[in-house]
């Protein structure tokens, strides 16, 4: 991957060595080591600022957060103390109510991911293989633009879409779905899954489309020539090749859904609780140590997920 520009890096190195090259000796050795030093200095000065920023501010904060989970809350000042305890972890990882919220969040994230993949595969297949070439770029851009419409704006839009009419109050009419199709899933889990799929679908569409484009035509043709029906070709030939792309997309659909708290807050008006809402509530309680313990859930699940997806080859595709 880095080979091509690495040649460019080697170039400056060659340049340093070549002038003195015919007479290998102490002089050339000194040049060589100078080139090495220069290389490391250049790399260091490029890499230090961004890595220092991310490690100190971001990784540092994450580690501090993990640490807070192990400290007792001072009931009077409502601030974490310095006396260690495992109580927060015990609560976050054993209390049934919390476990149910975690379980439901995971299920919702899985549902969003499956739904996104099920939409993305046929849709990107059509764009990459059936639509005329001149339309492809335009359609893909059209898929991606809503990503930038504003997360909150989209959550709000779904509130407007899903609104159910009521018999009472000033305003009896329902939202767009109800008045257009006569039915709305209302403000429950279905609403959460639908809205989250809406939010993160473009993240699945893009990598799967890239995978679709790379899928060699000859492979599909060969499968057809050998007598496989389209479905068989899809299942046994195309899908295995596409799997890393789907895995790459699923990183976003899964992890962004799992930790979301805006959708339950805005769309369902807090009728549905996800891990994020649990964290928010606890933090505002205020019980920072317990909130920190809750954040370990998405942290652990997502790091595990990322590692699993890396094994599935997802990172070679993003």
């Amino acid at each position: 991957m880095g080979q091509r520009l690495d040649e460019a890096a080697r170039l400056s190195y060659d340049e340093a060595v070549l002038p003195g090259a015919p007479t290998p000796g102490p002089r050339a050795g000194a040049r060589l080591s100078r080139a090495f030093t220069r290389r490391w200095l250049a790399l260091g000065s490029l890499l230090t600022p961004p890595v220092a920023w991310l490690v100190v501010i971001y990784i540092g904060s994450l580690l501090a957060l993990v640490a807070v989970a192990f400290f007792r809350l001072d009931g009077r000042t409502q601030r974490p103390t310095t006396s260690p305890t495992l109580d927060n972890l015990r609560q976050a990882f054993t209390v049934g109510t919390y476990l149910r919220v975690v379980g439901q969040s995971v299920l919702a994230a899985v549902a969003v991911t499956l739904l996104s993949a099920m939409i993305a595969v046929p849709v990107t297949f059509c764009v990459a293989r059936i639509l005329p070439r001149w339309m492809r770029r335009g359609v893909v851009v059209a898929f991606l633009l809503p990503l930038w419409a504003g997360y909150l704006v989209k959550a709000y839009a779904w509130k407007a879409m899903l609104r159910q009419g009521s018999k009472f109050g000033v305003d009896k009419a329902g939202g767009f779905l109800e008045s257009t199709f006569g039915w709305s899933p209302g403000f429950g889990w279905l609403a959460v899954i639908l809205s989250l799929t809406y939010l993160w679908l473009p993240y699945m569409l893009l990598p799967v489309y890239t995978g679709m484009e790379r899928l060699p035509n000859s492979l599909i043709e060969a499968s057809g020539d050998l007598g496989a029906k389209p479905w068989r070709t899809f299942r046994d030939v195309a899908l295995p090749v596409l799997l890393p792309s789907i895995a790459a997309g699923s990183i976003f659909t899964f992890s962004l859904s799992l930790g979301d708290y805006i959708i339950p807050a805005v769309v369902t008006e807090r009728k549905v609780l996800m891990i994020g809402n649990l964290v928010e509530r606890t933090l505002l309680a205020p019980n920072q140590p317990l909130a920190a313990a809750f954040t370990l859930w998405p942290l652990l699940i997502i790091v595990a997920y990322l590692l699993a997806m890396r094994a599935a080859g997802a990172f070679e595709n993003v």
């Binding site: 971001y58 904060s61 501090a64 992890s255 962004l256 930790g259 994020g276 964290v279 954040t295």
Partner: peptide
Amino acid sequence: ALPGIVTAVALQN
């Protein structure tokens, strides 16, 4: 890749 809420709580802390 990590949920916003994790980043948010970590930085706030």
